[in-house]
């Protein structure tokens, strides 16, 4: 078996007496969508912050493609190929949709210290950005400011940015949140295609999407992973049903 793309070992993080992440280990393998579910307050956001580098764990380790990234900051992790989307869309609102993606291309090329040359005339920025936009179906919206996009389109744009970054792994934080039925379905189809190139760690509340997409599911409750397995295993797991799905065993 090939090595996992993301490998988390015994991660722990406490805030005062609260163990927000309690000895979490999980992996993301090539070609898969690994869904992370859990009730509100289970510590999903804290875990994501630690994987992305915006919060440092107390102990444990995180590896990306075999490299230890536990102590790296968010920018360094992004450069190594960790792409992410945010629970609440985080874009440069004044920039056009295209510029938002070009910024990621520039990040990937590590070329931000060029002081001359108009970016809009630079095919090495615009071409890859347009390609990423057409992958998510936003190419017709390239010229409008990101602030004028609909909620669903912002979700798509965040994914295009992560793709343009040349991500080796994608971390999607509730991409379906606030989407209508059609939007969810379109996004589900998109993620289904994306996983072939880029494995996805998917944090999601929309159970239809999770059950439709996930190769594996891990359930987080009070900072611990209480169960991990295939869709069928998780559906039948009595502990999960009690803690998360709300049914009595």
């Amino acid at each position: 078996m090939t090595e996992p793309v993301i490998e988390i070992h015994n991660l722990a993080k406490s805030f005062g007496g609260l163990r927000a992440t309690d000895d979490v280990s999980l992996t993301l393998r090539r070609g898969e969508i690994h869904a992370l579910i859990g009730p509100n307050g289970a510590g999903k956001s804290t875990l994501i912050h630690q994987i992305c580098g915006t919060l440092m764990p107390d102990s444990g380790s995180i590896r990306l493609l075999g490299q230890d990234i536990t102590t790296l900051d968010a920018a360094a992790r992004a450069q190594l190929g960790l792409g992410r989307t945010f629970q609440i869309s985080s874009l440069a609102p004044d920039f056009s949709v295209l510029r938002n993606v070009m910024l990621a291309v520039q990040g990937r090329q590590r070329s931000s210290f060029r002081f001359f040359g108009n970016v809009m005339a630079d095919r090495s920025l615009t071409d890859p950005a347009m390609k990423a936009l057409s992958q998510v179906g936003l190419e017709t919206r390239a010229a409008i400011p990101a602030s004028e996009l609909s909620h669903g389109e912002r979700r798509q744009l965040e994914i295009a940015i992560a793709l343009a970054l040349g991500s080796k792994a994608l971390l999607l934080d509730e991409p379906m949140a606030g989407m209508g039925k059609d939007g969810s379905r379109a996004l589900t189809d998109l993620l289904d295609v994306l996983r072939r190139d880029t494995p996805i760690l998917l944090v999601e509340h929309d159970m239809d999407a999770v059950f439709a997409l996930a190769d594996r599911i891990s359930v987080l409750v009070y900072g611990r992973i209480v169960a991990s397995g295939s869709v069928a295993e998780i559906r039948e797991n009595p502990e999960v049903r009690a803690a998360y799905l709300g049914a009595r065993p």
Partner: peptide, 20 residues
């Protein structure tokens, strides 16, 4: 320029800039 684009992005959203 590219530098200018990064600078203006830093003004709008530094978290986004770090994420790329």
């Amino acid at each position: 320029s590219r530098f200018g684009m990064a600078l203006q992005a830093a003004r709008q959203n530094e978290v986004r800039l770090a994420a790329v």
